[in-house]
């Protein structure tokens, strides 16, 4: 093995010396990844953009230029899905980050049983979304689910048990007793999907943050404790700045993931669209159009718009949040 690598190195070295660059060895190193990503990632991407300029049901396609884009940007379905996507991103990423930050902080200070607790918190992340969602569907089933069984045992259910994943009315509407109009904010069904996602991904964030915390010198915190700094002060001035690279990483990755979320929607609601389309995020809209209605061009156009939204948001975060990240 070593001699093979050495022999290859010598060959590449010979090639490099002539060109005064690392190009030959770099081509060798990136070739497998670039080939696969080019063929199965970039190619479909180009094809998708190309198809977004056509109308038709996947056959007899004809060119219509930007027609699909104008249709998307003027359609109720698109803006509805955009709102659902935004609710979802805002409702999951910061919440799971906050929960993970608090839990990781707690776990870090626990000496005995930390390993076990950490394992338990990480557990949902290793289970398949399809299997876990299957379980959650039963948990939230209005009739046999433990959610309503618990509420009714507590005597909190009148003659209208919560419908969870079937409820299109806004959660703010329900909580405010009807004072806030139903269409404002996410539906209860969407909130259920959010809670599922928070449950499923927080373990991952906790482990990353815990690892980040382990890198913080203990003395720093102890001296702060001696100074009499409270929980908030310690976190705000010591822990948060030192964890900021990890938090920033989780934010970027979490936002991209949340924008593209599909499996949990599909597995929890059956179609992804949910009651009155209130869980139809952009990916579900794309999926429905591509595979349910055979509107290939329209679906592809929404996909391009989604990708643009993700790129824009990632760059914005990089600029405005990234600046505030504290690197040692």
């Amino acid at each position: 093995m070593d001699s093979l690598l050495g022999w290859l190195d010598d060959r590449f070295d010979g090639l490099s010396r002539r060109s005064h660059r690392d190009t030959p060895i770099a081509v060798f190193l990136i070739a497998p990844a670039v080939t696969i990503l080019g063929v199965f990632g970039v190619l479909p991407l180009i094809l998708s953009v190309y198809l977004s300029l056509y109308a038709g049901r996947g056959i007899n396609m004809h060119f219509i230029g930007l027609g699909n884009y104008t249709r998307a940007l003027t359609s109720e379905a698109f803006w509805n899905s955009f709102a659902v996507t935004l609710y979802y991103v805002v409702g999951t990423v910061p919440v799971s980050l906050a929960i993970s930050f608090v839990v990781a902080g707690g776990l870090y200070r626990v000496i005995r049983g930390r390993g076990l607790l950490r394992t338990v918190y990480f557990l949902p992340y290793v289970t398949s979304v399809v299997a876990a969602a299957t379980v959650w569907r039963v948990l939230l089933d209005p009739r046999v689910g433990i959610a309503n069984a618990t509420l009714s045992a507590l005597g909190w259910i009148g003659d209208a048990p919560p419908q969870w994943l079937l409820e299109p009315r806004g959660v703010l509407h329900l909580l405010s007793g009807g004072w806030i109009p139903s269409g404002v904010g996410p539906s209860l069904a969407l909130v259920c999907v959010m809670v599922f996602d928070i449950w499923h991904t927080s373990g991952f964030m906790i482990v990353i943050l815990l690892a980040g915390l382990s890198a913080i010198p203990r003395e720093l915190e102890e001296s702060a404790l001696i100074d009499g700094a409270g929980w908030y002060k310690r976190n705000r001035h010591i822990v948060l700045p030192l964890l900021s690279p990890s938090l920033f990483f989780l934010l970027i990755v979490g936002v991209i993931r949340a924008f593209q979320a599909f499996n949990s929607f599909y597995a929890l609601t059956g179609t992804g669209r949910g009651p009155l389309d209130t869980t139809q995020n952009m990916t579900v809209l794309i999926f429905t159009n591509l595979y349910q209605y055979q509107r290939v061009g329209f679906g592809a156009a929404v996909a391009t718009l989604l990708a643009l939204a993700i790129v824009t948001l990632t760059l914005v975060q990089w600029r405005f949040v990234g600046r505030r990240v504290h690197y040692e």
Binding site: R21, D22, T23, I25, A26, V27, L29, I30, A33, V34, L37, F40, G41, V42, L43, P44, L45, L47, S48, G58, I256, Q260, F262, T283, I286, F287, L290, Y291, V296, G299, A300, A303, L306, A307, I310, V311, T314
Partner: peptide
């Protein structure tokens, strides 16, 4: 490693992260 097209190639690779898997299903 320093090689021509490094930044561009890396950006293209990152771009494949931005498009959801569902879109690439049929072409693939």
């Amino acid at each position: 490693l320093r090689f021509p097209g490094r930044t561009v190639l890396f950006s293209i690779i990152l771009a494949t992260m931005m498009i959801p898997f569902e879109v690439t299903l049929i072409p693939n």
